[in-house]
Design a protein around this nucleic acid. Structure first.
Lengths: 144, 144
DNA sequence: CTCTTGCCTTCGTGTTACCCGAAGGTGATA
DNA sequence: TATCACCTTCGGGTAACACGAAGGCAAGAG
């Protein structure tokens, strides 16, 4: 059994956020001890991991709450849940592509700065600021 | 030369956001036409792309503004800018790893739902909700 | 036994990064 | 000339926390 603090370290969320999520009903299995402290078991942690990922996909707390409620209703809502996860999976894949571009951009920019520092190139390609060329690549929204 | 609307489509930002960024001084090269409309050239778009990526790395608008100001000061601030981008690159790489885990999670969850729908497995592994096991993998903050 | 430490609680306001809609100007087209 | 379609500024609203205050409970120190 884990406390708020332990869980927050485990999942790299702030304690505020963990309390916020539990208060909003996103972690239905969370219990309280005799002093009213939140207590997380493995199941609660699994819920929280799911919540964290759904949130990173850009779902609002409200929508995640609806999804959690669907889960609690059991088997009869499976198709609906399937559609939700299908959509979030598509978003996750878009985010993955965007993350690759972002990492590549930062790397190229860093190399450019290195070249300037090492005097490999002069700075006069810079009317304002040089940028790697990504205008033609897709720029999908990071719905976070 | 592009209008706010065109730029917003090109970079997949809302028009509100594009105006917000320009008003905050994050796109120093943006001009106005005789009717006071914002006008973006290639340089402005490059700035905006950079701003977008830095923001996705979790930088605040305020910090991005500071960085832009450093850029405008020219060569003398190159080491400082180097350190900033180095840090953001590290963050971008963490985000990339996290994005992979997230996509994998969604895929496994979707497959699990498919198994239930197809009757391959019964739903009774589900006291609350089944989750793929990721508790032991690192859970870094998505500073977005 | 009391005191301090440290964790937890609730509550309520503050902050960031927008979102949204109102009110209005401009300029090309019908 | 009227209607679009676009732009502008402005001001208030919102989501998801962040933060701090005020206080409860328990365990160890002296």
């Amino acid at each position: 059994m884990y406390t708020v603090k332990e869980v927050s370290k485990l999942l790299d969320l702030t304690e505020h956020t963990v309390r916020f999520y539990t208060d909003k009903g996103l972690v239905p299995s969370v219990k309280r001890d005799k002093n009213n402290n939140r207590l997380f078991d493995e199941e609660s942690i699994n819920w929280l991991i799911g919540v964290k990922y759904l949130k990173q996909c850009g779902m609002s707390v409200e929508d995640i709450k609806s999804y959690v409620d669907l889960c609690l209703e059991g088997r009869s809502t499976i198709e609906e849940r399937y559609e939700i996860i299908k959509k979030q999976k598509a978003i996750a894949l878009e985010q993955l592509e965007e993350a690759k571009l972002r990492a590549k951009y930062m790397e190229e920019k860093l190399n450019h700065y290195l070249d300037i520092i090492n005097g490999v190139i002069s700075d006069d390609t810079n009317p304002g600021e040089w940028e790697p060329k990504y205008a033609n690549t897709p720029h999908k929204k990071e719905t976070s």
